[in-house]
Design a protein around this nucleic acid. Structure first.
Length: 301
DNA sequence: CACTTGACCTGTCCGC
DNA sequence: TGCGGACAGGTCAAGT
């Protein structure tokens, strides 16, 4: 999925596009993508206005004037796309980066005409514009609940601190890992209760930046490495937000456009290519059950 | 409790 | 060209 930088990009886009719009209709494909019974929740949706769009970890929250909130997790393949006018269908050849990363949509930036077969939930606004929740793999979800109850959902109670907050210190960062001393640093980074928002891309990128082997046990890392990892993680995530996130496969922002961080990635999905620091061939291994990319010369246990 | 593994889905890619 | 298996950016429930 979309990790922290991608969800943050969607949040910023939606804040520009949907604040103040009034919801006139909601439809879903009756999959578990929207588990609320529509008949039960329509009264809190229809006629309400969007008042805010927020993010916590990889979760998006769309606040409504009825004091209800749409809580959304994009998981692996979810998209939230705002469509004002039906897009023109172009037939451009794939760009070089699309070819390199295994293709993508036939158009360079705009996704195809929506709704499509991956569309799970549709919101229609009063001016004829729409918000589509698309999710090929159906892992993601949208649910409606009173705004005051959002902090009480299990995930929100468990999730760790936001790594990009200005008052989040390297010392706090190192402290958070104590509870996962016996596991690998990669598994701990992916654990949302340790630090919020890190996924496979930024775990690999930041571990390369700090020259840490992903299978290193947390207890074996000196404090200096935690400090380095802290600054590398913040730096790759900030860069990615600046580039509009990573489009590896499905991710697009609220306007249906791709992010360009993959052009700046140093190890992620670059197996067989040269390490940007030392030229050694990057390899792909398995750590914490996930595909993991490292420079075998600089990242040793 | 800490930790690991499999399940949830659909689509794509790779090797035979 | 077809087919089976592995794999894909996340999280949770169940197992040890």
């Amino acid at each position: 999925m979309p990790e922290l930088p991608e969800v943050e990009t969607v949040k910023r886009g939606l804040n520009k596009l949907i604040i103040g719009r009034k919801i006139m209709a909601v439809n879903s494909d009756n999959s578990k993508s929207f588990p609320n019974a529509l008949s039960d929740v329509k009264q809190f949706l229809i006629g309400s206005k969007i008042t805010d769009v927020r993010r916590r970890a990889k979760v998006l929250m769309i606040d409504l004037s009825t004091k209800y909130t749409l809580v959304i997790h994009l998981k692996m393949t979810g998209q939230l796309v705002f469509v004002k006018l039906l897009p023109t269908i172009y037939n451009l050849p794939p760009t070089a980066s699309e070819t390199r990363y295994g293709g993508g949509h036939p158009t360079d930036s705009l996704i195809g005409v929506l709704p499509d077969k991956s569309t799970r939930v549709m919101f229609d606004f009063d001016d004829g514009s729409h918000l589509y929740f698309n999710d090929q793999r159906k892992f993601g979800w949208v649910r409606l609940m009173p705004t005051v109850e959002v902090p009480n959902i299990d995930f929100m109670k468990r999730v760790g601190p936001e790594p990009l907050e200005s008052d989040f210190t390297p010392k706090q960062f190192a402290q958070r890992f104590k509870r996962r001393a016996r596991t690998t640093i990669k598994a701990a980074l992916l654990d949302q209760s340790v630090i919020a928002g890190v996924g496979n891309i930024y775990a690999d990128e930041s571990l390369w930046g700090a020259k840490i082997h992903p299978a290193t046990k947390v207890a074996d890392l000196p404090n200096s490495k935690f400090h380095l990892l802290y600054s590398e993680l913040r730096s790759v995530m900030n860069l990615s937000i600046e580039k509009g996130g990573s489009t590896n496969r499905n991710y697009v922002n609220a306007e249906g456009k791709k992010g360009s961080y993959m052009e700046f990635a140093r190890v992620f999905r670059r197996e067989g290519l040269a390490c940007p620091r030392c030229g050694t061939e990057i390899i792909k291994i398995r750590v914490a059950g996930r595909g993991t990319h490292i420079c075998p010369k600089e990242q040793k246990i």
